[in-house]
Design a protein around this nucleic acid. Sequence first.
DNA 1: CCCCCTTATTAGAACTATTCTAATATATAT
DNA 2: ATATATATTAGAATAGTTCTAATAAGGGGG
Lengths: 134, 134
Amino acid sequence: MTDQKLRTILQEHGLKATYQRMAVLEYLVTHKTHPTAEMIHEDLSNISLATVYNTLDKLIETGLIIAIDIHDDGKRHFDYYGEPHYHVINQQTSEIIDADNFDMAPLFEAARKASGLTITGYHIEVYGVKSENP
Amino acid sequence: MTDQKLRTILQEHGLKATYQRMAVLEYLVTHKTHPTAEMIHEDLSNISLATVYNTLDKLIETGLIIAIDIHDDGKRHFDYYGEPHYHVINQQTSEIIDADNFDMAPLFEAARKASGLTITGYHIEVYGVKSENP
DNA sequence: CCCCCTTATTAGAACTATTCTAATATATAT
DNA sequence: ATATATATTAGAATAGTTCTAATAAGGGGG
Ligand SMILES: [Mn+2]
Ligand SMILES: [Mn+2]
Ligand SMILES: [Zn+2]
Ligand SMILES: [Zn+2]
C-alpha cells in the first residue's frame, strides 16, 4: 500500500499522518496475522513501544482496527478492520481464522430490538476444535 | 439457589464442591451484573482474591461462565453462561445488556464452512449508541 | 516557504490486573 | 477415620499497559 494512500486514510479519519502511524497502519493492513503491540514494536524497530500503543488506541477510536483478547496468552491482539469480519478461533492451537461469509444484518436487528440502541458494530468470536471425522 | 444444587453443578463438571466455589458460582448465577474478580472478592469478603481467580479459571474451563473483556476499564468481567447468550454494549455508558433473541445455528454453520472446525461456542458483542430518534 | 501552535513521539518510570509460590487446609474416596 | 490428591491463602512477583514530562514534528494560515 502506497504512502499516499496511507496518508489519505489517516487524514480522512482525522489523524495526523505521521511516519509512525503510517507504518503501524501499513503493518496491520499487510499482515494477515493478529499481532500484539510487542510484535509490531519488534518488527518496526525504530518506533517506540509507547507510540505503538498510542497509535493502536487512535486507530481503534477511528474503527480502522479492532482489539481481540485471546485469554490464552494474556495479551491483546490487533486486527485491521477495513472490512468487518468475524473470527473463528481454534481452541487447540489458538489460531485465528478470518471469516466474512455471514450476513450480520439480522443479528443487528435482533440487537436493536433487545437493547433499543442504534447498532454501530460487532466483535464476534466463534470457537471450535479440529473435526474428528473430516 | 440451594447449596445442594450448587454442589451438584460443580461435581457434574468435575470440580470439588468447596465452600468458595459454591459462593463464587452462586454469586455469578444470581447477579445480573458482569462483575470483575475484584468486585466478587469485595462482596464475598472471606474468600481470598487468589481463590476468586482460581475459581473463575476453573469455571471458565467447564464452560459454566465466560470472561468478557471491556476495553474501557482494562479489567476482565465475568458472566454466568448457563444459557448461551450475546451482549449488546452501550458504547457511551459501557452498560452490558444480555440478549438471546437470535438463533446462532446459521452462524455456526458458516463458521464451520469457513474453518473446517467443529464449532463449540461463541462470544458475541454487539456495540451500539443511544438512538437519536427513539 | 516559514511560523506557530497544537498534537505526536519518546524513554523510562509507574501502575495494576493477574499469576505465582509454597505452606496450610480441605474434600472425597476407600 | 485415614489417606491423598486437590484447593485455599497471603503475599510476592510478573508483565502488559499506561503515564510523565521533555522533545519533535505535522499542517494550517500567512
Ligand atoms: Mn487481519
Ligand atoms: Mn450474567
Ligand atoms: Zn481478523
Ligand atoms: Zn451476559
